[in-house]
Design a protein around this nucleic acid. Structure first.
Lengths: 118, 118
DNA sequence: TAGACATATGAACAACTGTTCATATGTCTA
DNA sequence: TAGACATATGAACAGTTGTTCATATGTCTA
């Protein structure tokens, strides 16, 4: 009974399927969070950083050497990955060792690879 | 014996781990393809389009109604999703019905949701 | 405590992306 | 064949993003 749906400003051909889809739709926040995660993974450099951390932890300058990027660039990316809980780090003296924070990340990467290699 | 590694322009602290990581690193093309897939998924509107297609096929204007976006915007996004083989369509008269092209996509979305909802 | 070193941070800029508006294409029906 | 309709496409513009360069922070050692 409550008419939460549109006010007829939008034209659609199959009102029932539209209503069904809307009932099952992600809420705005979830959709945004989901897009944000993928956005983080949607960069060449970050993909390589994450991939380099699957097998072992590495310090910043080693990551930079592995993926052939500047340390500054890597550091910026690591901050982003950190704030989104994709990587964590431990300090040992001056050196920060980064590693993956979440087993989901590796799963996502592998799932993506399956799509790429199909 | 072959010295394919750097020419010492990059400083790194743990040469062995770096070399190990480089041996296992994604090649440039794969990394780029992987990033490209995630980039596609890294947009609010596209996430919602894909999600709306998990349960049923929908035509363009219905998708637009479901996610509350303009038909033009949806059409642009669908083209992108099409060229990357994430959705396919069938024509019925004037109407184009879109659906997911690949079961990997749904898996990726669900895996992403797990990360978001942890 | 000074200097070296590993890393972080901020500002700036070019490159890229998503939306909108206008217009084009392709299909149906009268 | 003309007109309505569903969708596609192109151009343009604002907003976002990744890199670089310069500088700051924090830790160790002499």
């Amino acid at each position: 009974m409550p008419n939460t749906i549109d006010k007829c400003e939008v034209h659609c051909i199959h009102p029932e399927q539209v209503e069904f889809a809307q009932k099952n739709m992600l809420n705005e926040d979830t959709a945004q969070s989901l897009a944000d995660i993928f956005k983080i993974l949607g960069d060449n450099t970050r993909v390589k950083i994450i991939y380099s951390l699957i097998l072992q932890e590495l310090c910043v300058c080693d990551i930079a050497a592995v993926i052939n990027a500047s340390e500054s660039s890597v550091s910026h990316h690591l901050r982003l990955l950190r704030t989104h809980k994709l990587v964590k780090f431990r300090r040992e003296g001056k050196v920060l060792y980064y590693s993956l924070d979440d087993e989901h990340v590796e799963t996502l990467i592998n799932q993506g690879l399956e799509h790429v290699n199909e």
